[in-house]
Design a protein around this nucleic acid. Structure first.
Lengths: 239, 239
DNA sequence: GAGTGGTCTAGACCACTGG
DNA sequence: CAGTGGTCTAGACCACTCC
């Protein structure tokens, strides 16, 4: 891991991403104890306050448990069947011990409407990528995700295998976008006829709808995402 | 405002509550500029980092906007028709410019079941107050709230006029409970027959259900709350 | 330029845990 | 006791805005 004080990205954010990668890639196992905050300070060459800020964000997101007088522990997935709405679909499904996949319903290049331009803080008619996917966990339909991505940030995205690869992993690893912040809206609705058919739900069925905007570490909007989750499979947890 | 370094309550939390009270009680108007962070440091006799932590939490909750190079501003309500799930019903309704009231459906003293005892971190059979209310905004049914409160923390609560007073204001002002943290769960469902009747909804109708535990500043559980919100009137916003 | 919010450091102290 | 997480200070520097 290379941390840089010269970077535009805040140090605490780099530390957070570094730890998160360790957790998600399985180097740090659930329940395992992390190095103490003092040790992490040395490891990253940062001060206590800076390291704590990174840890605090991971605690808020539910990846780490901090027990005073004892230490830091990687959160155990089994205690949390609920999901933070700000976590990627693939990450969440894999945390639940299932296999994530997608059926691409639609994918093409388009341009930004007035509303989307405002939402993503770009000029009207800027090139966007439209992507609509049915998301599956162990082959069972779980959600429908529709997103608009800024084309210039991931120009060759449509050439990827979007049915099996995680969108966020592609964006992070291949297009070097450090996704960080996120604002989201949650509401409840009845599944439409098409949604019910795709999600294999009876009519009427409740669904959870989220709309979110994902930003890079430096606050640049990357994506507008609308997701429709099966009401019987999803609950969101906040702290 | 009396801040105390000797208190169990962290300084940043006291500063946050102090500023929040100013905003909620209208001393600081929406859109108005707050004193600069340096000035707040002097005012509260705290360091920059401590004041910033208080401000950051208020920014996250949507009460304050921080604009680099310009200053801190009280958030303008009209931009945010959505609600943070961690805000009290009365506060939220009043922020929307409506009048909040309640119809008490049920209110009595009871004891903690095994599950509730675990949830609220108390012994089984500890005295609790059960309170079920229909919550109205300008007379229109908006939500059904069912809560269990630890009796010892608010022993004479049932003597209050729970139809017109804000529960949280009673707890804070009369029982001196500094409510702070909160963990919540959100899910989607269809309104039951009774719920639809109370909320004046057709069948089928989607509703948002939240379950939350409210803690005091020192992390003691005070309340378990289950709320059922009309799907057509509520969306929750997260940051 | 002075003033703003945002990040960061190098120390310090506290309450708590466990041997 | 030494080690842990959590809080706090008094400074510093940066990028930004507005005059």
């Amino acid at each position: 891991m290379t941390l840089s004080t010269q970077s535009v990205i805040p140090l605490y954010s780099q530390i957070k991403e570094s730890l998160l990668r360790g957790i998600l890639q399985g180097e740090l196992r659930p329940g395992e104890q992390l190095p103490s905050q003092r040790e992490l300070c040395e490891q990253f060459g940062a001060s206590h306050m800076t390291v704590r800020r990174a840890i605090e964000e991971l605690v808020t997101l539910g990846y780490i448990k901090a027990i005073p007088g004892k230490g830091l522990y990687v959160a155990t997935a089994e205690l949390e069947p609920e999901t933070s709405p700000l976590v990627s679909f693939t990450e969440d499904i894999e945390r639940r011990g299932m296999h994530a996949s997608s059926r691409v319903l639609d994918a093409y290049k388009t341009t930004a409407s007035t509303i989307l331009a405002k939402t993503l803080d770009i000029h009207e008619d800027t090139a966007l990528i439209y992507l609509r996917r049915l998301r599956l966990g162990d082959g069972i339909p779980m959600a429908i995700q529709t997103c608009y991505l800024v084309h210039s940030l991931c120009p060759t995205l449509l050439e990827y295998d979007l049915a099996s690869d995680s969108l966020y992993r592609i964006l992070q690893n291949d297009f070097h976008l450090r996704l960080n912040d996120c604002s989201a809206m949650i509401e409840s609705a009845l599944a439409s006829e098409e949604e019910a058919r795709l999600l294999e739900l009876p009519i009427p069925s409740p669904v959870l709808i989220t709309e979110q905007i994902t930003y890079t570490d430096i606050g640049r909007p990357v994506e507008f995402l609308n997701a429709i989750y099966r009401g019987d499979r999803y609950r969101f947890r906040l702290r």
